[in-house]
């Protein structure tokens, strides 16, 4: 069983590596880049909304702060994007702790309202502090990364850069989920009382989850700025936050590999559905809605059980005959 999973992973990796050579156009490469960044952000979201089951609908706001922090440092102060990245991580850390504390007192739907409010406030502030952020006109000329003086151009080079990053965060996420932190995350959502009696400091763990999620989101935001080269507050709205949760749901809540699938499906599907013309948003949301109600385990699990069901049916038939 395990070796089958490994084979699938290796095949996917190889596919990811040769992908840009098969689809070598600015359109697809940018799309793949956005997908990779979305994967990273969903890894983070997985910690709170996936494992500790705390709803976060303000991901876009955190992403925006990370993006603007990094971009402002590199455009206004001329610092390297690497410093911007570190700054974004720091900012994410601060926001995570900042949002983590309210999450102790507020839960469930109330928390979701708080995160929505947070996202909206961030967007409004970014939009209206024009002298600092460029306001509604946005921020242009966000530079690209360089390693040892060689620029990593947008396009194929940056795709590999993002792929490496994504794999790094994937490895990190998997390690965390399997560690005692990850088990603690699950414990406090499944059975808080038992968790407490086992000596888990619920407050500390909740804040930790939020901090991790915020770091991932801020990091993703910084990379997003580098990918697009341009930032505008209007991008980071409530709908954007919703998309990340949809990715989480489709992939299977709590499953790190599922995060990857979810992000890929949600980012790429609207593009693949372009042929539906005016109807593609409706089709996409209907599919997502049906998925939410009928496939709460996520689509991969749903498809797997469908496959098993079919196998069983055909298996039974042949058993009867034989």
């Amino acid at each position: 069983m395990k070796s089958r999973k490994n084979i699938i992973s290796i095949v996917c990796l190889i596919a990811a590596v040769i992908l840009p050579w098969l689809f070598n156009s600015t359109y697809y490469l940018s799309l793949f880049g956005q997908t990779l960044i979305n994967i990273i952000i969903v890894f983070g979201l997985n910690f709170i909304t996936g494992l500790t089951r705390n709803m976060n609908l303000g991901t876009a706001g955190i992403m925006a702060v990370g993006a603007y922090t990094s971009a402002l440092l590199s455009t206004r102060l001329g610092l390297s994007p690497w410093i911007g990245l570190v700054a974004a991580i720091l900012v994410g850390f601060l926001i995570g702790r900042g949002l983590g504390y309210p999450s102790l007192r507020i839960s469930g739907v109330y928390l979701s309202l708080t995160t929505i409010a947070f996202g909206e406030i961030v967007r409004l502030v970014l939009n209206n502090t024009t002298s600092v952020t460029g306001g509604a006109q946005g921020l242009t000329n966000v530079p690209v990364f360089s390693i040892f003086g060689i620029q990593i151009q947008r396009g194929i080079p940056f795709y590999y850069f993002l792929l490496l990053f994504m794999l790094l965060m994937f490895w990190l996420s998997t390690r965390i989920v399997r560690s005692k932190w990850g088990r603690a995350f699950k414990a406090i959502s499944d059975n808080p009382d038992a968790a407490e009696s086992l000596g888990i400091d619920i407050a500390k763990i909740k804040i930790l989850a939020f901090t991790l999620a915020a770091i991932y989101a801020a990091l993703g935001g910084a990379l997003y700025g580098n990918l697009m080269g341009y930032l505008n507050p209007s991008t980071f709205n409530f709908d954007f936050s919703i998309n990340f949760v949809i990715m989480l749901m489709i992939g299977g809540i709590g499953i790190v590999r599922g995060n990857i699938i979810g992000a890929i499906v949600v980012t790429m599907l609207p593009e693949l559905l372009r042929f539906l013309g005016d109807y593609y948003q409706l089709v996409f949301y209907t599919i997502a809605f049906i998925g939410a109600i009928k496939l709460p385990q996520g689509w991969p699990a749903g498809i797997a059980s469908l496959a098993k069901w079919i196998a069983r049916k055909t298996g039974l038939k042949s058993r009867k005959e034989g």
Partner: peptide, 28 residues
């Protein structure tokens, strides 16, 4: 290696012009 190969080209255009890449593009 691929990163270095692409990055080291030293030009500052990204990948392509519109007509050049559609032949390698397997889009619809």
């Amino acid at each position: 290696v691929s990163l270095a190969a692409c990055g080291g080209a030293g030009t500052d255009t990204t990948t392509d012009t519109s007509t050049a890449d559609t032949s390698t593009d397997s889009a619809e």
